[in-house]
Simulated scan of single mutants.
Amino acid sequence: MSDSEDSPLQALKAAHSKEKKELQAKITALKKSVPNNDKKKKKEITSEIEKLEKDLKDKHAKELEELELKFEVKINEAGDAKHDTQSNGEIEEKVSKVSKKQKRLEKKAADSKRREEAEAEDEAAAATSRATHESESIKEALEKRNLKLYDIAPDGDCLYNAIAHQLSNHSKRILSGANLRAMAADYMKKNPDEFSPFLTDADGEMLNDKKYKEYIQKVEAPSAQGGEWGGDAEIRAISCSCSKRIEVIQPNGQVIVFGEDLKSNDPIVLTYHRHAYALGEHYNSTVSAAAN
């Protein structure tokens, strides 16, 4: 079937062209939404883009095949009306071929859907297993310290809110995640030599002065406004700024300590989670197991 033979084909190709342009615009927006130093988020966005491209390609192929089938049916119907010399058997044979082709397409689509559902179920089961193992490991580590988990909302500001929660408990001053972001940004701004050599952009390159300043701005901004998610660098900055030892319990029970030289009987203790939350990496706070 050529473009000149049937105008619906031209209309469908025009619609496909428009959808491709819209997808490209969406892909560009997704890429721009990824923070420069967030490799995990970049990987997630890359996977999402690949799926979007594949879904659109499959959709276009299916629509073209369906149009081809409709066109063949039209030819058969036209032949039935215009060519009295054509036998009913010949017409039925052509319709049968179209019907078989449609059934093959439907079977292929059904098989593909079943595979995708099975893969999704397997991935969900694996994720649940990883999350359960992680949760049990962290709970065991906390019990040894006579501590229990204190949930922090997984909103992109979890690290700062978790530290703010504990610092507020350790003193009479009520602090917020925004206060901790400002504290980290100020310390990193004043001590670039301590941090810039260990920070990279999305391409793995060290940050120059301009990019380092931009990174600091993202440290200070809340996540809802494009702020950078907190990590090791920001924990170290906060530890140095407030002269407080910070210990982070990992899923395997290992403890990462920031401010090793700071002796404290009352350190800040956080928990780090890789699989327990849909958004990905997450920090929670802790409280005494005796607390209500």
Rank of each mutant, 00 (worst) to 15 (best):
S4E: 14
E5A: 12
A11P: 01
E19C: 08
V34T: 07
P35D: 08
N37A: 12
K41G: 14
L52S: 04
K57D: 12
K59V: 07
Q86K: 13
S87D: 12
G89L: 10
E90Y: 04
E90F: 03
I91E: 00
V95Y: 01
R104H: 11
K107H: 13
R114Q: 11
A120D: 06
A120C: 06
A126F: 14
A126M: 15
A127P: 02
S129A: 15
E140N: 11
L142N: 02
Y160W: 09
I163M: 02
I163F: 02
L167W: 00
S171P: 04
R173C: 09
L175I: 04
S176Q: 06
A178E: 08
N179R: 08
L180R: 05
D186P: 02
Y187F: 08
P192L: 06
P197H: 10
T200P: 02
D201M: 07
M206E: 08
K210M: 12
E214N: 15
E220P: 03
G226H: 03
G227Q: 01
D232V: 13
I235D: 00
A237Q: 01
P251H: 07
Q254F: 05
V257G: 01
F258W: 00
E260A: 13
L270M: 06
Y272A: 01
H273Q: 09
R274Q: 09
A276G: 13
A278Y: 11
E281K: 15
H282W: 08
N292G: 13
